[in-house]
Design a binder for these strands. Structure first.
Length: 492
RNA sequence: CGGGGUGUAGCGUAGCCCGGUUAUCGCGCCACGUUUGGGACGUGGAGGCCGCAGGUUCGAAUCCUGCCACCCCGACCA
């Protein structure tokens, strides 16, 4: 194993894969396309979960849990949804194994144990949930239902990449039921806003809120809202989606309610989700050639203390200082780890904590003991300073806030300088190949043009921004009239 | 699912074309000692059904056949 990561300039996707493995976030498993999320990576995911969960509850949602398996007949009920996911479903057909008579010591599927009806391993849970909601909803008094579930889902992807696209992934999926169309749309927009706020304020990832075009829309949705982020290599990443499902699932599962005028009506629905893919977004937004860079909000340890000593006496004196710093930080709500491993030398520890993105590092050695100082190093800027030990905790508190802000600002600057307006298709192709990033261009609104552009350039319409201002123009490809610009990019 | 490639120790590899003692090297691992302000050094040590199953041969990591797995490029996708 080489000591250094492949640089981003050399090979961005190699850099990404190495970083995930070397920073101990995740690794490939014995199961094709499925990853093992390791403790350090999972700790970051837990930070995301905790904050999202808090935000969901603050907006009135409750958690529940629905089955992993969906009977095929339920799965196929909403046709568009079923058709959209059919190609990537894992299906359970049998329920028992037996000893293989032709192959000693091996097992085989018991041909007698075939299921009456196949079970689809959920690629998403609308079907099983709406089948359940049918029993819960009779009157407008039963609405709204505002439920989220934390779960795993399976989508049998042809090609997978750690966190960005795995056959099984962790996510949350909200599924809400409403009495009116307006209320459901409001919910879908609200949750997209929650995602945007989470991405920007908590993860430090600037996002563009928008709606998807018809061809990019979630299978079964009437409208798909999304947040789109831009990665360091100029490719876009869909970081979250929120769908207004209209009455499609109510129709498919016959979910009706009596409104306050005594009339039967179909229920309006939304669903919304973010996944462990956010880990990929996190990595590709902030990290550098030395490894992961974590915004303080997401760091399992926000600060690490590395002791430097020549003998036990020095170590004891340093430990005393370290423990008192940790106590002060704890009172300020800051997490700090004292890396007192005797099995690694300071240089190795520095390198490891940089690789793992710990926002701040304190080093305490004999010189510091003498001068009543510590060395404080920032992961994001890789700068070091000598700080009086008496003021170190207040210093750190301010610095963490500053780092969180600066990471966002830096990413925002990059993003904003990588949205390019183009007026013709030549320019479109040139910008896409050389500058990369988002391209803001007029589009005639047809799926044909969208498809053609995708074939020619691999760029897709990432979204039609929410606050888009109307502007007369000509479609960048067809030359037809257009009333607004949309954002194109190559995407993950 | 189409095209290409690769399987040798925990990881990365040499050897394979042209069969022949004990399968190469680096990292990592273990023990002891010296070290500790940016990935330490020395000495010693452990670790291999050479992807699996057949075949050819006196002899196979090496040649042949079949199978399996994985990777890359396309198509598909959060």
């Amino acid at each position: 194993m080489s000591k250094n990561l492949t640089s981003r300039a050399e090979d961005y996707s190699k850099w990404y894969n190495e970083l995930v493995v070397k920073a101990d976030l995740a690794e490939n498993s014995a199961v094709r396309g499925c990853m093992v999320i390791k403790p350090y990576g999972y700790a970051i995911w837990e930070k995301m979960q905790a904050e999202l969960d808090r935000m969901f509850k603050e907006t009135g949602h409750q958690n529940a849990y629905f089955p992993l398996f969906v009977p095929k007949s339920l799965f196929e009920a909403e046709e568009k949804n079923a058709e959209g996911f059919a190609k990537e479903c894992a299906v359970v057909t049998h329920y028992r194994l037996q000893n293989d008579p032709d192959n000693e010591g091996k097992l085989r599927v018991d041909p007698e144990a075939k299921l009456e009806e196949e079970l689809v391993v959920r690629p998403t849970s609308e079907a099983i949930i709406w089948n359940t909601y049918k029993g819960w909803i009779q009157s407008y008094r039963d609405l709204p239902i505002l439920i989220n579930q934390w779960a795993n889902v399976v989508r049998w992807e042809m090609r997978t990449r750690l966190f960005l696209r795995t056959a099984e992934f962790l996510w949350q999926e909200g599924h809400t039921a409403h009495a009116t169309k307006g209320e459901a749309i409001q919910e879908a927009e609200l949750m997209n806003n929650v995602y945007a706020e989470f991405a920007e304020n908590f993860m430090g990832i600037p996002v563009i809120k928008g709606v998807k075009t018809e061809s990019e829309r979630f299978a079964g949705a009437v409208e798909t809202y999304c947040i789109e982020a831009l990665m360091q290599d100029g490719k876009a990443l869909q970081a979250g989606t929120s769908h207004f499902l209209g009455q499609n699932f109510a129709k498919a599962f016959d979910v009706k309610f009596t409104n306050n005028e005594g009339k039967q009506d179909l229920v309006w629905a939304t669903s919304w989700g973010v996944s462990t893919r956010l880990m990929g977004a996190l990595i590709m937004t902030h990290s550098d050639d030395k490894g992961l860079v974590l915004p303080p909000n997401l760091a399992p340890s926000q600060v690490v203390i590395v002791p430097i000593y020549k003998n036990d006496k020095q170590f004891d004196a340093i430990s005393e200082k370290a423990e008192s710093i940790i106590k002060e930080l704890k009172e300020l709500g800051i997490s700090c780890k004292f890396d007192k491993r005797t099995t690694h030398r300071p240089g190795a520890k520095f390198a490891q904590h940089e690789l793992q993105g710990v926002p701040l590092r304190i080093a305490i050695g004999p010189k510091d003991l003498e001068n009543k100082t510590v060395e404080l190093a920032r992961r994001d800027t890789l700068t070091k300073s000598i700080v009086e030990i008496s003021s170190v905790s207040s210093n750190i508190k301010d610095l963490l806030t500053q780092i969180q802000d600066e990471l966002f600002t830096k990413a925002l600057n990059y993003r904003d300088t990588h949205i390019t307006k183009v007026e013709n298709f030549e320019e479109f192709k040139t910008v896409l190949e050389t500058k990369t990033g988002f391209i803001s261009a007029h589009w005639d609104g047809t799926a044909e043009t969208e498809q053609k552009i995708k074939e020619l350039t691999k760029a897709t319409i990432r979204c039609i921004p929410m606050d888009n201002k109307l502007e007369d123009g000509k479609c960048v490809y067809s030359g037809q009239d257009s009333s607004q610009r949309v954002l194109f990019a190559k995407a993950y």
